[in-house]
Nucleic acid binder design. Structure first.
Lengths: 123, 123
DNA sequence: CGGGATCCAAGCGGATACTG
DNA sequence: CAGTATCCGCTTGGATCCCG
């Protein structure tokens, strides 16, 4: 199954239904864990659209971030397969960052989240 | 605009483009903040499909959670307009939890996230 | 230029005990 | 039954300094 819109069973006597809920929850949890981190979304949005940026470009684009955080978040996203890192063996060093195809594929999902947030009723 | 799939400007000289990226990032960030918390997604998935559960039902459904955390996360989601809380003035007390319409509307967005996670290439 | 190493403060979440 | 109150450890993230 790929949908979370499962029919509600009036009496959830089915273990399969419970398993479905748990696995869906943990699946989304794993996805969100990849996006956790104070700066990942900001970085992500700067790289969307196929943009390729150097480390210093990102520093300039996100003035509030520290070098440590920028490096750390980029490393994690690289390890997670969201970001591709290209090192040019030259001096002074030059490193470029871009999204992988899978990273780009996050766009529709974040769009859906954005749409949901926009639909928030007034309180 | 509602889409994050904006065309990449070869030279991002447009301030509008930058503003778009920033606001989209912060929009999604705000959405994700509502879902942050160790147990919110688990609770959410137990309430999806229009299920109505009592406090003790949720405790039984999520054995690993503590009372403090269950109450806290439910309060936050109630305050955020995701969960509706109904108190029956009787003794012993009875409190039921269900998703608001807006809470239910999270389903497609989480589906998209789930689909994205499932599309992760093998490493 | 593009980091790594270290130290430190704040906040999140867990365990336990108590209550209307 | 459905919480609240308190304490406490661990993780996250910021500041600073150093390096190839």
């Amino acid at each position: 199954m790929t949908s979370t819109h499962e029919k509600v069973s009036p009496l959830p006597q089915s273990k399969a239904a419970a398993y479905t809920r748990e696995s869906a929850a943990s699946g989304v949890e794993q996805a969100l864990k990849l996006l956790e981190g104070r700066w990942k979304l900001v970085i992500l949005f700067h790289l969307f659209g196929g943009r390729v940026l150097r480390f210093s470009d990102l520093e300039r684009a996100i003035p509030a971030i520290s070098q440590k955080m920028l490096a750390q978040q980029l490393r994690q996203m690289e390890g997670d397969g969201i970001v591709r890192r290209v090192v040019y063996p030259q001096v002074p060093p030059k490193v470029e960052y871009a999204l992988t195809e899978w990273g780009q594929a996050l766009c529709p999902a974040l769009d859906a989240l954005l749409a949901w947030a926009a639909a928030r009723p007034a309180e």
